[in-house]
Simulated scan of single mutants.
Amino acid sequence: MSDDERDARGTDGDDRDSADAADPLAWESLDAEVAYSCPGFDVRRERVRLPDGTETNYDYLAEPPSVVVLPFTPDGEVVVIEEWRQAVGRVNRGLPVGGTEPDDDDLSAAARRELREETGHEAEAVERLTTVEPANGVANSVLHFFVARGCTPTAQQDLDADESIRVATTTMADLREHVAADEVRDGRTTLGVLYYDAFGE
């Protein structure tokens, strides 16, 4: 694992920054349990002590870190997916995203795997873009963004049983326009496109 990837690696919520534990704003975790579990995520319940001494329960969603891939074909088009999202009842247009596995020491390899499984494309090169916590008030989710270049459809999709995905390509200009027009509702895709525009090549 590269130094960048080691620094960016997310946690499952159990390996928290010990330096922050001494901050006057910190909550003290007294006890924890899994209140609900299903494929993909848990809901964890912690008994916490607040800075004023109050004890209360705090529930949050816990899930493995994920990789988000911004894939470019050799001619500069972007590979996107169209996927049914039951929670919002519509087809979502966005970037390939997938959860990491416990033995994923190399996040760039995980990004390659998710790109291949969801789109059937394989990349010549993969580089880290950024890492974010998209909803750390209610979840311990961590998103690792990667840019994949030289992506060609040389493999077969290998979708999970609950994935309904159609693959397409578009230009970066069109994708940017769709983000600006609120036509891309997926937050991971919006963030990836805007971050790449601001800080990528």
Results as ranks from 00 to 15, higher is better:
Thr131Tyr: 11
Ala111Ile: 11
Glu114Lys: 03
Ala111Trp: 03
Gly120Cys: 13
Glu114Ser: 05
Arg113Lys: 07
Ala109Trp: 09
Thr119Pro: 06
Glu122Arg: 01
Ala125Glu: 15
Ala123Asn: 05
Glu117Arg: 12
Arg128Thr: 13
Val126Ser: 04
Glu122Cys: 00
Arg128Leu: 15
Asp106Gln: 03
Asp104Lys: 10
Arg113Tyr: 05
Thr131Asp: 15
Thr119Leu: 07
Glu114Asp: 00
Thr131Lys: 15
Arg116Ser: 05
Leu107Trp: 05
Ala111Met: 01
Glu127Val: 07
Thr130Phe: 08
Thr131Met: 15
Glu118Tyr: 04
Leu107Gly: 04
Val132Phe: 12
Ala123Ile: 06
Asp104Val: 10
Pro134Gln: 14
Ala109Gly: 03
Arg116Gly: 03
Arg116Glu: 02
Glu117Cys: 04
Val132Thr: 15
Val126Leu: 08
Gly120Pro: 02
Thr131Ser: 15
Asp104Ser: 08
Gly120Asn: 04
Arg128Cys: 04
His121Asp: 02
Ser108Leu: 14
Val132His: 09
Arg128Pro: 12
Ala110Trp: 09
Glu122Gly: 06
Asp104Arg: 04
Leu115His: 03
Val132Asp: 14
Asp104Met: 10
Ala110Val: 13
Ala125Leu: 06
Leu115Gln: 01
Leu107Tyr: 06
Glu117Gln: 13
Leu115Val: 05
Ala123Glu: 06
Ala109Thr: 14
Thr130Arg: 08
Glu133Ala: 13
His121Cys: 07
Val126Arg: 01
Leu115Glu: 02
Glu114Pro: 00
Glu127Ala: 07
Glu117Phe: 12
Arg112Asn: 10
Leu129Asn: 11
Glu114Met: 07
Ala109Tyr: 01
Glu133Ser: 08
Glu124Asp: 14
Leu129Pro: 07
Leu115Gly: 04
Glu118Leu: 14
Leu129His: 14
Glu133Lys: 14
Thr130Ser: 10
Asp104Glu: 13
Ser108Val: 12
Glu114Ile: 08
Arg112Ser: 06
Arg113Glu: 09
Asp105Phe: 11
Glu114Tyr: 02
Arg112Tyr: 05
Arg112Phe: 01
His121Arg: 05
Thr119Tyr: 06
Ala111His: 06
Leu107Ile: 10
Glu133Asn: 12
Leu115Phe: 04
Arg112Trp: 05
Gly120Asp: 12
Ala125Cys: 02
Arg112Ile: 01
Thr130Trp: 09
Gly120Thr: 09
Asp106Tyr: 02
Arg116Ala: 04
Pro134Phe: 12
Leu115Thr: 00
Ala110Ser: 15
Glu133Gln: 12
Ala111Lys: 04
Gly120Trp: 14
Glu122Pro: 00
Asp105Trp: 13
Glu127Asp: 08
His121Gln: 02
Glu118Phe: 00
Ala109Ile: 14
Ala109Pro: 08
Thr119Gly: 00
Glu133His: 14
Glu122Ser: 08
Asp106Val: 10
Gly120Arg: 03
Arg116Tyr: 00
Thr131Asn: 11
Asp104Leu: 08
Ala111Gln: 05
Arg112Pro: 01
Ala125Gly: 07
Glu133Ile: 10
Ala125Trp: 11
Arg116His: 06
Glu118Val: 09
Thr130His: 09
Glu118Ala: 08
Asp106Arg: 01
Ala109Gln: 10
Ser108His: 06
Asp105Glu: 15
Arg116Val: 03
Ala123Met: 10
Ala125Thr: 13
Glu117Lys: 07
Thr131Phe: 12
Thr130Ile: 13
Asp105Ile: 11
His121Lys: 01
